[in-house]
């Protein structure tokens, strides 16, 4: 099992969650976050905005679905016209155990 954490533009959240659900990845945790990337935020004149709002989507999925999920995020979170700075990042990490509270079962 792996944990995919995708940081995307807030305005892409709804379409991305819809597409993930259609592809069978319904369960997700969503957090509104602020952050900055390699471009050091956005500079307008002398003002630097380095707390740019983004949405963090967390998905726990089986190993073999990794490419599917990443493909969906890349396709629907990318800005039109081949992408732009600020479209986000995807992080993948491993999960040792998953427990469901209501049933006490382990596994996804």
């Amino acid at each position: 099992m792996i944990m995919v954490r995708a940081i995307v533009r807030p305005e892409k959240k709804d379409v991305l969650l819809g597409e993930l659900s259609d592809a069978g990845f319904h369960a997700a945790t969503v957090v509104e976050v602020v952050g900055r990337g390699k471009q050091k935020g956005i500079q307008i004149g002398d003002l630097i905005y380095d707390e740019i709002p983004k949405t963090l989507i967390m998905l726990a999925i089986p190993d073999e679905d990794k490419d599917d999920v990443i493909g969906i995020v890349l396709k629907y979170a990318r800005s039109s016209g081949g992408g732009a700075f600020g479209d986000g990042k995807i992080f993948v990490s491993s999960i040792d155990e998953v427990h469901t509270v209501s049933s006490g079962k382990t596994g996804l």
């Binding site: 726990a60 491993s94 999960i95 155990e97 998953v98 427990h99 509270v101 209501s102």
Partner: peptide
């Protein structure tokens, strides 16, 4: 401990626990 206090009679929606390295 988390499972014990969070379990309800609703059968769904009690949450998930992930253990990551």
């Amino acid at each position: 401990a988390i499972i014990q206090v969070n379990r309800t009679e609703n059968k769904v929606g009690d949450g998930k626990i992930f253990v990551l390295p």
